[in-house]
Design a protein around this nucleic acid. Sequence first.
DNA 1: GCATATATGTCGTCTTTCTAGGTATCGCGA
DNA 2: TCGCGATACCTAGAAAGACGACATATATGC
Lengths: 113, 113
Amino acid sequence: MTESKQELLRGTLDMLVLKVVALGPSHGYAIAQRLQQISKEFFQVHQGSLYPALHRLEDKGWLQAKWKESETGRQAKFYELTRKGRKKMESEVVNWERLCGAVGLILRAEEES
Amino acid sequence: MTESKQELLRGTLDMLVLKVVALGPSHGYAIAQRLQQISKEFFQVHQGSLYPALHRLEDKGWLQAKWKESETGRQAKFYELTRKGRKKMESEVVNWERLCGAVGLILRAEEES
DNA sequence: GCATATATGTCGTCTTTCTAGGTATCGCGA
DNA sequence: TCGCGATACCTAGAAAGACGACATATATGC
């Protein structure tokens, strides 16, 4: 079994996290679970990637954090999108789509005369 | 004009190069041009990215190089796909498509009840 | 003689991810 | 009660890959 979970593509994590947080404020642990669930187990986000990413996004002013009680009754750090974060997310999505399109052009290219 | 060319997504360059070489043996300089042209100027591949990538792909046994005369009459290093390289390319493409699908799931996700 | 396009390459830096560890609390079953 | 798995946070170090800047050389045209 060479069955290891999918590595993330460098640079996509920020967009994915912003998008998941846009679905509703959430804490780190839950964000990782959501990403895994929504992607049908394709993405497996490691804590060593996620927490630094959250701090990065907070530093940049795209996320804002508040300690609250989680669903299970413990303290957890809930992140929500700032206005800047929403803009950033939207531009990242647009860029992702353009990038996908460009990759698609390459992949569908055929030998020209 | 904040018009700088698109950064590559880390990890996609290998696939794109393999795919372009699959269109027909080509040398570094021409590979960069082709990538730019086919992607309609979206990708601008830097020399500092491309040449190390070509050496990497050659080391892995996915590309094979021969010095030949280029279209302009000079010596250039022509790369072509090996059998291993073709397999690698195909699996990378499959993986790219699965990854795109997974990202799509995230981007299209909506707040569930 | 010089700029530009062609063509290859290296080096140092930066960013991001992974691996591998650490802390702590809670609920559950043995 | 003891340990374990799940929940929840975190960091440090290493690896990878892309970038910018630089270096080199030849051919063509002005």
